[in-house]
Simulated scan of single mutants.
Amino acid sequence: MLMKDSKNTDFGYSSLTVRNKLFSFRIPMRILAVSLILVILGTFAATVAITLGDFPISLGQVVQAIVGVGEEFHLLIVREWRLPVASAAVVFGALLGLGGAIFQSLTRNPLGSPDIIGFDAGSYTAVVLLILVFGNMQYWSIAGVSILGGIITAFVVYLLSWRKGVQGFRLIVVGIGVSAMLTSLNSYIITRADVDDAMVVGIWAAGSITRVTWASLIPSVAIAVIIFILAVLLARSLQHMEMGDDTALTHGFRVGPARLALIVVGVSTTALVTAAAGPIGFVALAAPQLARRLTSSPGVSLWPSAAMGAALLSIAHLLSLVIAAFYRPIPVGLITVSIGGCYMIWLLVREARRHYGRIG
């Protein structure tokens, strides 16, 4: 049963309350509205991106081709070549935003992102070893070792951070150190590899969704659906953990198993994207905080973060195509890193001012 709650929520806004014999949850209206707007924005940007390329197509022709009508040449370009790439921008962006939200909630720190903590570096290292050492470039092999490498790195960081519990700041600092070590290892392996193989890894490492096809996107979407379902099931656990370990323990909540499950789900989001498109940085870092400001919520919310991630990556993909029309093709990963680097500088300056302001 779906009903509107006339009372205000903790966020100060009306909400939708969903009640069923099996479950009951409340969705603040502002979070719902912002999420829908961001999804629409991301979908629109992805659709506009389909019009750009070596063979420009009007927006009307794109819509016709998507629904299955129009010239056969347009159907080929849109449905077989460009639609999977545009869809990947939305799906992968949502995964990155979701992963960033999970880790920023776990660490209770805006810097708690998989690409900052080092989990992406673990996925990257696993793929580099698979391609350069074992010569395997099959999608399922890359996807498998990418997720495995990210999870192994997460557990290493988790264990090194353990001191009668895991604190968010310690997890971030240890993760940055592990990431630096893995980056050095990756550089060494690449310099020792054959030039052609090193070029393949280098192009993949730039983070590009333009090589995504239906053959790689469909299994990625299937895995993404499983990840989102697990995130829904673990959302309540995340809310408990945001209150702090001590508070959660006093309520009889088992913090350890829940944290490990959330880490696995969070790592899987970025590892899946890394396997299909290469490492795409800073979307997971920026999306949760930008969504938090739009929703005016006291904490990071999963679904606005996922919607913001979809919008950010779709817009970055569109921007890369616009730049390619006047200059040369640029991988979307370089676009997100350039913009995300500026965002990270601003975030670090803001956190430093807040910290020294409290001291003063």
Rank of each mutant, 00 (worst) to 15 (best):
D245F: 12
I203D: 11
A215R: 03
W214H: 01
R259F: 09
A235Q: 12
L238R: 12
V212P: 08
W214N: 00
W204C: 03
M199G: 10
S208A: 15
R211P: 03
A235K: 07
A198Y: 09
D196F: 13
V200M: 11
P257A: 00
A215G: 02
S237L: 02
R211A: 15
A231P: 10
D246L: 13
S220I: 07
G207T: 09
S237W: 07
G252A: 00
V201N: 00
A198S: 05
G244Q: 05
R254V: 01
G207Y: 10
A215D: 08
L249C: 01
L249E: 12
I203Q: 14
T247C: 04
V201A: 00
I263E: 11
V255F: 06
D245Q: 06
L234I: 04
L233V: 09
S220R: 06
I229T: 09
G252R: 01
H251Y: 08
L260T: 10
V221L: 06
I218V: 02
I223W: 05
G244Y: 10
I227P: 10
I218T: 00
H251I: 04
P219C: 00
R236V: 05
T191Y: 15
Q239W: 03
T213L: 02
M241K: 02
H251W: 01
A235S: 14
G256D: 08
R236Q: 07
L217G: 00
A222E: 15
A205H: 09
F253S: 00
A231D: 10
W214A: 00
A205Y: 06
P219V: 00
Q239G: 08
H251V: 04
G256M: 06
R259V: 11
S237A: 07
T247V: 15
R192G: 12
M243R: 10
M241R: 05
G207H: 10
G252L: 01
A224F: 09
M241C: 02
V264G: 02
L260P: 03
P257M: 01
T250V: 04
V264F: 12
V255P: 02
S208W: 12
G244N: 06
M243A: 15
I223R: 01
I229H: 09
M243L: 15
I218A: 02
S220A: 13
P257W: 04
I203E: 15
H240E: 12
I263W: 14
V232R: 04
